[in-house]
Write a protein that binds this DNA or RNA. Structure first.
Lengths: 321, 321
DNA sequence: CTCTTTATGCTCTAAATGAGTATAATTAGG
DNA sequence: CCTAATTATACTCATTTAGAGCATAAAGAG
């Protein structure tokens, strides 16, 4: 980077070895259908949709939005940037590859075209992340033992302790509670411990310790983990779940959506209390008896909330003890 | 972007009109000295340090880190990405300019070289953001009247209402409380209302409605606002203030640092309660009587916390009623 | 020795949160 | 028609957390 004596930033950007660079956009597009969180994929569900940044769009975001809307036939209600990273190894040539990843929320229903088959349940990629029906057996049976073994394998005693501590915290062992937000940390630990196929890819195939969970090309599964983590964090303080819901819905449907994203169940009555308290929704006047029991009132999100969206908050009963 | 039928993402990135792009890094480097938050600047305090991304670093982050450390003579304890944006208008040619902005935390003390003069109090750029001594007079006297006038100027009644609502919320009017996190929203409103010089730059100089606050080139002040907002949010749930503190400090010093960042005062006793409760610090054993009254115990951050940093949380009494 | 100043310990109240009980309004099945 | 099952919805209660204030301790200034 430049010295503080250089003339202006912009000039410095052009004069000094300005690198030839190519930019890619990568999208983590999420929908929740039938209480299952899904992600839009390509390449037999092995890759996230992505492509080169095209000149001609006003901004990165607008390019992404246009493309996703063409694919899904749905407006992308919400987009946010995830992370930008640079990679030299990816392409053989001199060029630096810059990838800008985004998180987008939409609804899967009535999506047309070939992309329909592209929706995949995100727990296919992260089976250890779904705790709605209790702790998945893969955790105590396979992952935790192997992770602890990996931790114990370190030569340096400090590293042993450090690894063990990270595993304990990330996977909620001992007296730590499971924290659903640590999706990325967990994936990275599994990667470090060479327990996901991506970690050993291209190297020794022999010791490939395959554990449950669908893989993806390059670092796409890592990006997906980033997106899930971000979304799990975000739903707690910003009303983004709305983007995943149909125009009218019952409170239980809303709750199931939140639970699908968080990968854990919430207390029904408290969930209702919080949602109603915050004035995020209003009754449509109708009721449904689709659900089996007593008919439920249908709700819609309040107009005002949508207008104030950038600043409004949401709370959900997803705290950690 | 590509179709879902294209072969692989990486190939698509190279085959299809892969745009010529140049990448810039922009850094918001923050320190707190004598209870004042400062930002590292260049160009007579009119620009944030930035420069082209250089091939030869492992990652974007490492390039930034090396550069800043060379400049400040201090290790950058903490770096995080802020935002990536693309601009075509900036450079006259065909190239797309991609700027990746970062937030970095360090300590100003004993920084050597010409960059020493580059530290500037961040409230020079955002005088309306410092509420430690009460509501700054610029707000009721200048900004709020002008913002409300701007809101009323809209032709469409819906837009009038919308603008007014945004001003009310962002600036804590009516029964809304001041929310120190909304730094960016406030700057954007002022920009929209053409109350900051950046908004009218290059166009009609006549009606330039100059309000207090130092300006910067291009969109650097906007990026700084993004950094401040991020930091104000972050200190509430992650122990990043530590990076801004000397090795040993009193609880009051810590409190003053938090207050400097948040731009508002906190309840002393409750602050202490929260910090001690969370086991983030430990006593060094020494005391200082530098402060005038009863000598204060000195503290340091706990080693373990630093090790667990990626996952540990912090709470601060900065909630909004 | 007293006033001022900062440090530090403790109490009190209100609000938020987690968890459970009770009742209402349906449908399914006999 | 009656009963069980199922979901919706209204309340209650105990615990925690957060905001605010009071009281005491330990220094320096005059």
């Amino acid at each position: 980077m430049q010295d503080s004596t250089t003339q202006t930033t912009k000039q410095a950007g052009r004069n000094k070895r300005s690198q030839a660079v190519s930019a890619d956009l990568i999208a983590v597009v999420i929908a929740v259908t039938d209480g299952e969180p899904r992600v839009l994929t390509i390449e037999q569900a092995q890759a996230l949709p992505s492509g080169p940044f095209e000149l001609g769009h006003r901004s990165l975001q607008s390019g992404l939005r246009a493309w996703v809307e063409r694919q899904t036939g749905h407006p992308l209600g919400y987009i946010e940037q995830l992370y930008t990273f640079a990679d030299r190894d990816r392409t053989g040539d001199e060029r630096v590859q810059i990838s800008i990843s985004y998180l987008g929320l939409t609804r899967e229903e009535q999506a047309q075209g070939p992309s329909t088959q592209g929706w995949r349940g995100w727990y296919d990629y992260f089976p250890w992340e779904d705790h709605r029906a209790g702790v998945p057996l893969i955790l105590p049976d396979i992952l935790v033992p192997r992770l602890l073994a990996w931790a114990g394998d370190a030569e340096d005693p400090n590293m042993r302790r450090d690894r063990r501590q990270r595993v304990v915290y990330a996977f909620g062992l001992d007296d730590c509670d499971w924290n659903e937000e640590l999706v990325l940390q967990r994936y990275e630990l599994l990667y470090e411990a060479a327990l996901v196929a991506e970690a050993t890819r291209g190297r020794d195939k022999g010791s490939a310790p395959v554990v449950p969970g669908r893989t993806m090309i390059a670092d796409h599964r890592r990006i997906l983990a980033t997106g899930i983590a971000r979304l799990r964090t975000k739903i707690k303080y910003r009303p983004v779940v709305f983007e995943l819901m149909p125009p009218a819905f019952t409170l239980l449907q809303l709750q199931r959506t939140v639970e699908a994203l968080a990968g854990r169940l919430v207390h029904k009555q408290n969930f209702r209390r919080l949602i109603e308290q915050q004035n995020l929704v209003e009754e449509t006047g109708e009721t449904t008896s689709d659900t089996g029991g007593r008919p439920a009132k249908r709700f819609r999100f309040r107009q005002t909330v949508l207008a104030e969206r950038t600043v409004a908050g949401t709370k959900l009963p997803l705290s950690r003890a």
